[in-house]
Each structure stands twice: as C-alpha cells, then as structure tokens.
Design a protein around this nucleic acid. Structure first.
Length: 597
RNA sequence: GGAGUGGUAGUUCAGUUGGUUAGAACGCCGGCCUGUCAAGCCGGAGGCCGCGGGUUCAAGUCCCGUCCACUCCGCCA
C-alpha cells in the first residue's frame, strides 16, 4: 500500500462538488461508476454514497502518469484521486448535481480492482431480486438503495432527539428472553447451561417496558429488534425494528399528541410535508363499517354501504338471500364513475381480487338513465327497493354498484380490497399525499373459532375502557379496549394501548380469556407479582420503523429499507443463513434433531 | 399449509405447431477516437434453456416431480 491514504486526506465527498469549489485542490475516494475513454481525454465517473463526480484525465497533466493508470480502470474498482476542481464551461451535465464541474486529476491511486459485477450498479435496475440479494454488498452501492439507509439513519437521529427532548430514557431490554405464551411463533435459543431449556427472542419487549414503568423510569424508548417466526410478506420480515415507547401517568390523548408531534416532525424534516395535527381518529367500528378494514386508506373516499337491514326479507336474489339467511351481511361499494370497470373487469378482474378472501363472487349493477339498473342484480330488485337502494348509495346514472354478500369477515375483506383497486383505477391515489388516522376503540377480545375461546385482540395487558370494566364478566365481546393504531395511507404504522395497572382488573381479563389461576401463575407469575407493588397508570405504543421508512422512501417492500433482509422463505441469500451446525455444537446444547437428511 | 407468476448468455428478455446452427439489447473483452456523461465507430467472446424423471425419431417447447425467487390467502396477541 502506498502512502496515498497517509498523504492525501479526503476533503470532499463525490456528491459535494459545486461551482463554488472551482480552483480548489481536492482529494476524493470512491468507486468507478463508469469510464469514457476518448483516446486522449478519459472521463471517469467516481461514485460514493453521496453521489457522482466526473474525474478528467489528460495526457498532458503530470507527464501523463495518472492518465496512463486511468486507461486501465474498470467499473467498481476502488480508487482515490487528487486534482483541481475546474469548471466544465459549456459542457455542463444538468442531470447530476455536480454537473457544472469536474476534477482534473494529477494523481490516481488504485486500491483494489473488481471483476465485472453480476449487475450494473445503477438506479433504474430490473435485475431479479434474488441476484441482488446474493450480492447485497453491490446492490447497496446503488444510490437508489443507499439513500434509503442514509435516510434511515437521519430518522433514527431525529427520533432519539425528539423523545429525549420529551423526557424519555433510552433503555435496552433483553434479547434472550422468555417464550411468549400467546401470539406469533417464537425464535428459540437453546441454553447450554440449562439443558432442555430455551430462551426466546422477543416478539416485542412488552412486559419489560411495563416493568420499567413499575420501576419508576417514567418514560422509556428503545429502537429495538423484534422477532416473529411467521411467514413473510412484502411488509413483514421475521426480524424487524420497532420504535418502542412506554409512559407513566398518561391518557390516550397524551400518547396521541406525543406521536402526532413525532410524525409531524419526521415528515417535515424528511419530506418537507406538513402533517395536519392533531391527527384525526376513527373508531374501529366505524372503520370496519365504512371501509371494511381496520387500517383504512383515507387518501380517497369510496365508502362501503351496509345494505343488510334494507334488504332483509325483501330480496329473492339467491346469493343475497342465501347470505342473509345464513346470518351474513350484504354490503356495496358505489363508484360514481362506473366505466372504470369494463364488463371484462367485472367478469374476471374483480372476482379474482375478491376470491383470495373467500368471496365466491361480486354481484354488480350499472345505473342507467332514470335510475334503473342493468346487470345480474337488476332482475331481482323491484322498483321500490331499487329506489331505496339508489338513495342509500347516492347512486346516479353512470354509476356502478358492486355488491358482496357473505359472512361479515368475507364481505369486508373482499370489498376493502376492491375499494383499493377501484381507487387506483380511478387515479384517486395521488403521489406525495398523506393520510394519517388513529383507529381507536378496538374490541378487547376477538373470538377464535379454531380454539373456541376469546383471545386478546391487542394483548392481554391492554386496559379495557375504564367505563366498561364492569362488563368484562357479563359481556366480554362488547368491551372496548383503550387501544389505538396509527394508520398512514392504509398501512398500519403501529399500535399501542393504555395498560392495566390494577391486578384485580388484570385477573378479570385473564379470566375472560379463559386462563386458569394456575396458567396465569405459570405464564405471568412474575408480572402479576410486580403489578401489585404500586404500578402507575401507564401506556405506550410501538411503531414499525421499517414500515415507517418504507413509507418515507416510497419503497414497495421492507427489503428496500433493511440492509440485509431475508427472502420469503426466511433465508439470507448472501450468507446462506440459516445453516446446519456441526454435531459437536448440538451435543453441547443437548439437542438432537429429528430431520432426516 | 394453500393459490398464482416467473426461472433461456453476466443482466433483462424473445424463442411460432415439438424439427436440424437457441437470438436481441445492455454489459464484458480487443482496437480506434481529446468533451463525453445511455459516449461513438469496428471487431470478438460468452449457453447444464433451474434440477430430476418421462413421452417422442426428435424436447428450451409436451407431461410428472422437485428446487429457488416474488405476490397473495391462511398465519402475524
């Protein structure tokens, strides 16, 4: 290694250069993005994470030594260069921020060469993601990806500052923790010193952060990794990062106001967007009724209308009647511009969108002049009923009514999806528009058909509304929780709740969940014990940092904001993880596998 | 666990009804070229058609299985 690094200290990053730097002697480091050899002059685009600057090599500079070396450069070689910043005069490149200047180099140092990379390092890349992930270290050199991580770092800094300014302590909680009794599957870690026993990686530091409130820490924050061994999606990775918060002596409103200020600050700093605060809210019941989903995208309207009561006993149309008789519901999505969906769409596209949710079909009617209908539903509806339906839907000539009749959960899921498809078709989703909403008043419990019992919708430490605690014994299904989700453009950014701070209420909730005293003691004994010692009222929230970054970066997948993400089968294409381990390691851990190989 | 889409040169793709030598673009290699920045011009190399079976005179193409990636359902308190 030459003395280059010792004698030539980097004084600028590639993306820094502007015409104000003209005449400066500079040293830059980076990677060869591209080279253009004109026989005499050689142009090298030098790249680092900040951008690209053009280097120029001339045979007449410094006896042509640097020029001679530059002749051999190839993409992705790591180099350093020294020279003078000069104006490009007439030959400005308006496409890049540094396009007004170039560095006329007198010295060039090659640190390391590179084989031809498996894909070009450029922003508009269409290479298969599997290859990009295998060569993630090259993929990350692309500015399109690199800037996501620079932005991520910026958001982290801002996050820590915001919550520090609001009196939060950053405290770490264990990664080697206990298996969670309910919820997602755990990643387990065998204990060597306790043969046959396992730690679990945390799905969330829920109990620890509540214990910190009991400890008088008052306000806790952590940007922490969480783990869930469930199947992946574009917006779900097995390990993900959560902004975890907990506060003592607070109400729902306090927490919402704090988070409103946080997202407002982030959106302003990162995107220059002013989020109107306070962020509005909608109840869970209203969200499900009007949008069929608990994370509605409110960038557009297109509400659903529940026609169940209007139609009951008044319609013979087989599909509707069948659903109603079976205890289901009928809902409709009304589109004023009915022509966005062609007959072919109605036959193919719409059913295909609805089918994954169990919907057997989507009936439809087009509204004709005078309010009459055409389409499969038209015949089954008499004039009087049709008039009432038109009124209920606000239907007018040219409109399209899409019906779903089935179990409530199927109707809601299917129409929620179609509502999104329609909005996209209608061009209602404008770029750089943001719709924040708090979804509140979630039910405490939901009934688990498979296990024939109630489960906590949020988690079992969530407080019921204070005015509904009495109903825990009599009408658990009707009790609403002091729980809230923050939803942005139809993405669940995070959720939280006021927690139970009284052991008697906690025991009532466990009873409602059908847990015996023995089970409670076994699973939550330490926690119940701690709860007895003067627990402050407290609550908190967890935001999915990866999802937050995905929104801010405009990414379609979590993988674009996680440096080393996993594939859908939870493997790492780069490192090959998970791996088999040797027999000795297993023996040390007292583990025997039952997999044939 | 289930449904769908895809897998052919380094990359992105085309490849007809099964048919003889599997193509294109970009990239790569060599040469020329002093103002390019998607540089240009000339020439060249590069293929386990994902893998394994099967049908057939003949398979990139048809059938069965399997692996991998992606999207979705289930699942994710």
């Amino acid at each position: 290694m030459s003395q280059f690094l010792a004698t030539h200290k980097r004084d600028h990053r590639c993306g820094d250069f502007r015409d104000t730097h003209v005449d400066e002697e500079v040293t830059v480091y980076g990677w060869v993005d591209s080279y253009r050899d004109h026989g005499g002059v050689i142009f090298i685009d030098l790249r680092d994470r900040t951008g690209i600057v053009q280097l120029r090599f001339e045979p007449w500079v410094a006896e042509g030594v640097a020029h001679g070396l530059a002749d051999k450069l190839r993409p992705e070689w790591a180099i350093g260069a020294r020279g003078k910043v000069i104006s490009r005069g007439e030959n400005i490149n308006p496409k890049i921020p540094t396009g007004a200047v170039e560095v006329l180099c007198d010295t060039l140092e090659v640190f390391s060469e590179s084989p031809t990379p498996p894909f070009e390092i450029k922003d508009d890349l269409d290479t298969a993601e599997a290859i990009r992930l295998k060569y993630r270290f090259l993929d990350l050199r692309r500015n399109a990806l690199s800037r996501n991580f620079q932005l991520r770092s910026q958001v982290y800094r801002q996050t820590r500052n915001y919550f520090a300014d609001h009196g939060f302590l950053e405290i770490e909680t264990p990664i080697l923790a206990n298996s969670t009794p309910e919820g997602a599957r755990d990643y387990l870690v065998p204990s060597r010193v306790h043969p046959g026993s396992f730690y679990a990686l945390p799905q969330s530091p829920q109990q620890f952060k509540q214990l910190l409130m009991m400890s008088g820490m008052d306000r806790y924050m952590q940007i922490c990794r969480c783990f869930r061994d469930e199947d992946l999606r574009a917006d779900r990775q097995p390990e993900f990062t959560q902004l975890d918060l907990e506060m003592s002596f607070v109400s729902v409103d306090d927490i919402r106001a704090l988070l409103d200020g946080y997202v407002r600050g982030v959106w302003r700093e990162v995107l220059g967007v002013e989020v109107p605060t306070p962020v509005p809210s909608i109840t869970y019941a209203e969200a499900m009724d009007k949008y069929g989903i608990d994370k509605p995208d409110l960038r557009y309207g297109l509400p659903l209308t529940d026609l169940t009561e209007l139609l009951r006993g008044r319609i013979e149309f087989r599909i509707f009647k069948g659903a109603l008789d079976a205890g289901g519901i009928v809902k409709a999505l009304y589109l004023p511009e009915g022509k966005v969906f062609s007959r072919k769409d109605l036959d193919k596209v719409i059913p295909a969108e609805a089918a994954p949710f169990g919907a057997k079909g989507i009936a439809w009617a087009r509204v004709q002049p005078g309010g009459s209908w055409s389409g499969p539903v038209a015949k089954g509806v008499d004039d009087a009923l049709r008039g009432e339906l038109n009124d209920a839907l606000g239907a007018e000539e040219g409109g399209l009514i899409l019906f779903s009749a089935d179990k409530r959960s199927v109707v809601n899921a299917a129409l929620a999806r179609i509502r999104g498809v329609a909005a996209e078709r209608l061009g209602l989703i404008k770029p750089n528009t943001w719709s924040f909403v708090w979804v509140t008043d979630f039910p405490m419990f939901e009934y688990d058909e498979d296990e024939q019992r109630y489960q906590a919708m949020h988690h079992p430490f969530t407080s019921p509304r204070y005015d509904e605690i009495d109903q825990l014994e009599t009408d658990p299904a009707g009790v609403k929780a002091l729980a809230y989700d923050l939803v942005v453009n139809g993405v669940e950014l995070g959720g939280g709740s006021i927690r139970i701070h009284r052991s008697d209420v906690q025991h009532q909730v466990f009873r409602a969940l059908g847990l015996s005293a023995e089970e409670v003691d076994e699973k939550f004994g330490f926690f119940i014990e701690a709860l007895r010692y003067g627990t402050p009222p407290h609550g908190g929230i967890a935001l999915g940092m990866d999802r937050l970054l995905m929104l801010l970066c405009g990414a379609d997948s979590l993988r674009d904001v996680i440096a080393f993400p996993k594939t859908q089968r939870a493997t790492d294409m780069l490192t090959g993880s998970p791996n088999q381990v040797d027999a000795k390691q297993l023996t040390d851990l007292s583990i025997r596998t039952v997999v044939d190989d």
